[in-house]
Each structure stands twice: as C-alpha cells, then as structure tokens.
Amino acid sequence: MEGLKKSDANLVVYIHPSKAKKVSEAILRELSSLLFKFHETFDGVLLAYDVKILSQVAKILPGIHPYFGVRLKAELLTFYPKPNMLLEGTVVKLGQQSMHAIVLGFSSAIIIQEDIRDEFKYKVKHGKEVFVSRGNKRHQIEVGTIIRFIVKSFDEEVLHICGSLVPDHTGSVGWLDKNLEEWSHADSLTKKRTGSEGSREMLEHNKAMVDGETLYLNTDHHIKKSKRRRSGDS
C-alpha cells in the first residue's frame, strides 16, 4: 500500500531531571506520546519507531528546571496519504450514498456517492447492504470487504481520508487480485495506445533520510528542527 515510508532520523529528546534515573523509560514514554499523530517534521503520521541511544553524555539546558538532552538514532515508520495514492481499507459501514472504511486500523475514510463509479449499484441482499458491479456480479463490496481506492484528500488534524472508487483498478481487493492478470493486460494495451512509459505499482515502501537533520523533541510534545539547519548552516 502506498503512503507508508521508513525513514532514518537523528533525534534529541529532552528529559526532565526527575527522570534522570530512568532515562530509557522516559525516552520511550516521550516517543510513544507521538504515535498516531501527524507531525510536519516527520512528514507524516508516526506509526512505529526503533531507537538507539548514541551517547550516554547528556547536554544540560539552563533554566529553572534544567532539562537534559539525549541523542538518539531512530528508524521511523510514517504514513502520509497524498492525492492519487492507492490505499486499502476495511469497509465498516455502507449506505446508499457512501462507503466508510478504516485504514491501518486507525484512520477513517469515506467515499461518497459521486466518487463511486456507475458500475457499482447499491442493493440490499438478504438484509445486508452491498454494492454490486453491473459488469461482474462477483465483484461485490459489503461490510468487512477490503477495498482499494484512490486518495482525494487527507485531513491531517483528524486523520480523515476522502477517497474515490472511480478508476477501474479500484474496488474489492479480493476480486481485483484474482483478476490482476486481466487488468495488467488491459493496462499494457492502454499504455501502448497512449505511448506512456512505466508501470503501475500496487505497493510502495520507501526508505529515506529525514533531510539529514537532527530533530529536537521536548516534553511539551512540540517537535523543533535545529536552528542551525533552518538557517542553512551545515
């Protein structure tokens, strides 16, 4: 699934002096408080982390409460769905005018009627709501179905996704995967006609550095970039 990114980052976590005897525990607590929230510095929603303390020597900050900074090297897994990315989610609710799904177990997604292609017709079968393809009755979407859809927009504050089932390569993942060969052949023919190059990817899992910057985390849960890096100095 697209939208996932694995990154390497250098961090400095500021710890209250009262936590000096339990530094590792304080660091994990601080990082855990950032999970499943969007952070502009990380360029996405933090899903997981793996940290390694680089130095046992802490930098003490002057002030009424002299916090001390601990340098870490961390591997971060983030999620940032952007327009036209392909995502997958589990349908949790259907209505005549919309579909509702959950992505990665925490982000909600909605696909409204105008973003559901005409191929799908809403029906109630045996007391269950379902969208059935007019072209192939085996292609059905109901509660519990894993769907593949296109991202239209993403609300970073509430982690809400607006999606679309208009493209032909969207719909029930189970049905699409069984007919992957047919879709690949049709896609190849389309590319030959249009003269386009490249191939459509179903999964993207990138590994990238976070601009080589050191990120600073304070216990008030604000993340700041190094002032030296922001000013353009190396």
Results as ranks from 00 to 15, higher is better:
43 D>M: 06
43 D>V: 04
44 G>I: 08
44 G>M: 07
44 G>D: 07
47 L>I: 14
50 D>T: 09
50 D>P: 00
50 D>G: 03
51 V>N: 07
51 V>A: 08
52 K>I: 09
52 K>F: 06
54 L>V: 06
55 S>W: 04
56 Q>E: 15
56 Q>H: 13
56 Q>T: 14
57 V>Q: 15
57 V>E: 15
58 A>H: 11
60 I>Q: 11
60 I>N: 08
62 P>I: 01
62 P>S: 13
64 I>D: 14
64 I>P: 00
65 H>L: 14
66 P>C: 11
66 P>Y: 12
70 V>S: 04
71 R>H: 00
73 K>F: 13
74 A>Q: 01
77 L>F: 00
77 L>P: 01
78 T>P: 00
78 T>S: 04
79 F>E: 01
81 P>C: 09
81 P>K: 05
82 K>Y: 11
83 P>A: 08
83 P>F: 05
84 N>R: 13
85 M>R: 01
87 L>H: 04
87 L>F: 07
88 E>L: 03
89 G>A: 10
90 T>Y: 03
90 T>K: 13
92 V>F: 07
93 K>T: 00
94 L>P: 05
95 G>K: 11
95 G>M: 10
95 G>L: 11
96 Q>Y: 13
97 Q>T: 13
99 M>D: 01
99 M>N: 01
100 H>Y: 12
100 H>M: 06
101 A>R: 04
103 V>K: 02
105 G>F: 07
105 G>C: 09
105 G>P: 08
105 G>W: 06
107 S>D: 07
109 A>W: 01
109 A>K: 02
110 I>Q: 09
111 I>R: 02
115 D>V: 03
115 D>W: 08
116 I>M: 13
116 I>W: 09
116 I>P: 10
117 R>Q: 14
118 D>F: 14
121 K>G: 06
123 K>P: 03
124 V>P: 06
124 V>N: 12
126 H>S: 13
126 H>D: 15
